[in-house]
Structures are given as structure tokens and as C-alpha cells.
């Protein structure tokens, strides 16, 4: 079982200005089963579009997304192919990902009954099992989402996703909206579930420290493209692309205290995706850019086994 994303692009038209936005621009990913791919990048890099595409909420403008060789998007139903309800998404905001008028037990029960995953008389037992699995007391099944804390709601969202017996979970900033003191628990839960259930994860975040903690492979995205990818330790211990280096340098680090030296690693802002720079999209902010970077589009090339970057200036 593999997730294969091959040369995927996604273009939107902005209604008013008629401008074209390239949210994704030739993204290729191959992720073997039971591995975790961390996708890191700043706003506008396309990581959320990619997430929506992997779960079939969006159709690629070109290229293919397949799971076990079968396309994920069902053109006829305009959504996730029914074969692939085993690909699930966990959202960032635990306050909007559960139906506010539905008890949490019912939201899980619905998944079980719609897909006939268990016998009718076993539904309650399975709900209890799933809630226990994510560390929620089954007694809370009769609560409404607003009666739970953010961390508890995120666990319920995870339990609901697990109810459909997924192989692949797309985790879109799953701990970013949570209080700092409960993030670690949810991270530990995700790691435990991965081991116990043999899940494959796509972990999307802007927080490099969380990406570092959970990923086997890492892809760094900038303006719709992957600029560096590889095993987590190669990418983070031995970053090659200037953008990856800048991201690592920009991570607020609590272990280095009181040196009171903030140096901004990058000048300028992320360009508007509607007016993409020519050549390498990063060249306007890049500390090592040369004139030809504004004309030469960059493609990924291997610099060490499995470690790829899209930059001509790194030898």
C-alpha cells in the first residue's frame, strides 16, 4: 500500500480579479505504508490544499493522486471515492470539526452504522472501545462537543476518524490549536496509535519541532512546490535548501535562553501566489540567489540517497 502523488497541480481562479492562483505546482510524493510524512511550510505553500486533495475534497487540476494504484478522487461523486473511506482527515480546529448538535458518541455511532462496520448490538461497545483507545472515558459519550476541552475534542475527532478503520490519516495541524500543556499528550497518542494500528500519516504543520518529532520523511514546501525532501534526520540535521535553513533558524527555541539576539533569517514576505515570481519562486527572498535564479525554474534533484532539493546554487 502506497500513497502516490504524481506531478499534481491545482489552479484556482479568483472570481473578482480573474487572476489565476497556482496552489500546487508539480508536486510528487511517494509514501510507503506505515510511514509518516511531515509536510512543513508557511501560509500559501499549498500544504492544506494538498491535504484536501489527499482526502478527496478537491480534484487535482492535473496529475494523479492514488492509493494502492487507484485514484482517490471520484469524478462521478465529486468527492472521495467510496473505496477510500479508509483515508481520513483530522482537522486543526477541534471546535469546528464536530457537529455542535450531536453527542460525541452519536457522531462515532453514525460512522459505524453508515458503513455497517459492526453489528447493531455491538455499536455501543465499539464506541466505548474507540473512545478508550484515544484516552477518553466512555462515560463522556453522552456529552456534546462544547462540554469538552479542546484536547478532548481533538481526541474525539481522532476516534471518529479511526471508526472508519483508516489506513491513512491526514493530520492537518492537529495540535496547533491546542493549549501548550496538552499538545504533548496528543502527540504521544498519535505516535502510540501509529504503532498499535499500523497507520500511515501525513502530518502537516508550520511547527518544525512537531514535524521533527513525528516524521520519518519530511517535505518542505514553498509556494506550491516541494523545495526539499528526504529522511527527517538528513533534512533537519543537514539541510541544504536555503529556505529549509531559514525555517530551522526561525524556529523559536526555548533551549537557548537570553542571548537576546534576534536576527531575521529571511528578508521580505511570501509573494502573493496570484503573482508568482518567475524562475525559482524563492529567489526574491533567497540569501544565495544569483541573477539566473529569476529565470531558471528549479526541479528536485537528489543530493544524497533519498534526499532531494530544488536549488541550482547548492552543489
Amino acid at each position: 500500500m502506497t500513497l502516490s502523488i504524481t506531478d499534481v497541480t491545482k489552479r484556482y481562479k479568483i472570481r473578482v480579479t480573474r487572476a489565476q492562483v497556482n496552489a500546487l505546482n508539480g508536486v510528487t510524493i511517494d509514501l510507503p505504508a506505515k510511514k509518516t510524512l511531515g509536510i512543513v511550510g508557511e501560509s500559501g505553500c499549498g500544504k492544506s490544499t494538498l491535504a484536501r486533495m489527499i482526502v478527496g475534497l478537491e480534484q487535482p487540476s492535473s496529475g494523479t493522486v492514488t492509493w494502492n494504484g487507484e485514484p482517490i478522487f471520484d469524478k462521478a461523486r465529486n468527492m472521495l471515492s467510496s473505496k477510500h473511506s479508509n483515508i481520513q482527515l483530522v482537522f486543526q480546529d477541534p471546535y469546528s470539526s464536530l457537529n455542535p448538535r450531536q453527542k460525541i458518541g452519536d457522531s462515532i455511532a453514525e460512522v459505524l452504522t453508515v458503513h455497517h462496520l459492526v453489528e447493531k448490538d455491538a455499536v455501543q461497545a465499539r464506541i466505548a472501545e474507540l473512545l478508550t483507545e484515544v484516552g477518553i472515558s466512555p462515560e463522556l459519550a453522552h456529552r456534546y462537543p462544547h462540554q469538552l476541552s479542546g484536547g478532548q475534542r481533538q481526541r474525539v475527532s481522532i476516534a471518529r476518524a479511526l471508526a472508519s478503520q483508516p489506513d491513512l490519516l491526514v493530520l492537518d495541524e492537529p495540535v496547533s490549536a491546542l493549549d501548550v500543556s496538552v499538545r504533548a499528550e496528543v502527540m504521544n497518542l498519535l505516535i502510540d496509535l501509529r504503532e498499535r494500528l499500523g497507520l500511515t500519516y501525513i502530518f502537516i504543520s508550520h511547527d518544525l519541532s512537531m514535524i521533527r518529532h513525528i516524521s520519518d520523511q519530511i517535505a518542505v514546501m514553498y509556494l506550491g512546490k516541494i523545495v526539499e525532501s528526504g529522511p527527517w534526520d538528513s533534512v533537519l540535521e543537514n539541510p541544504q535548501h536555503p529556505y529549509t535553513k531559514a525555517l530551522i533558524a526561525a524556529m523559536p527555541d526555548h533551549t537557548e535562553v537570553g542571548n537576546n539576539a534576534y536576527e531575521a533569517p529571511l528578508k521580505g514576505e511570501v509573494p502573493d501566489p496570484a503573482s508568482m515570481p518567475t524562475g525559482c519562486a524563492f529567489h526574491l527572498r533567497c540569501p544565495i540567489a544569483v541573477p539566473s535564479c529569476s529565470t531558471n525554474a528549479q526541479t528536485l534533484r537528489e543530493i544524497e540517497p533519498n534526499h532531494q532539493i530544488a536549488c541550482q546554487e547548492v552543489k
Binding site: 508557511e42 501560509s43 508550520h206 518544525l208 531559514a246 525555517l247 533558524a249 526561525a250 524556529m251 523559536p252 537576546n260 534576534y262 536576527e263 531575521a264 533569517p265 529571511l266 528578508k267 514576505e269 511570501v270
Partner: peptide, 14 residues
Amino acid sequence: LDVTIQQQILALVM
């Protein structure tokens, strides 16, 4: 803010 922009703002404030 994005982390690279956050860093710029922190440097400015400092």
C-alpha cells in the same frame, strides 16, 4: 504570523 515573518517582527521589536 508565519515563522519567518515572526522572526522579522521580533527582531524589529527588539
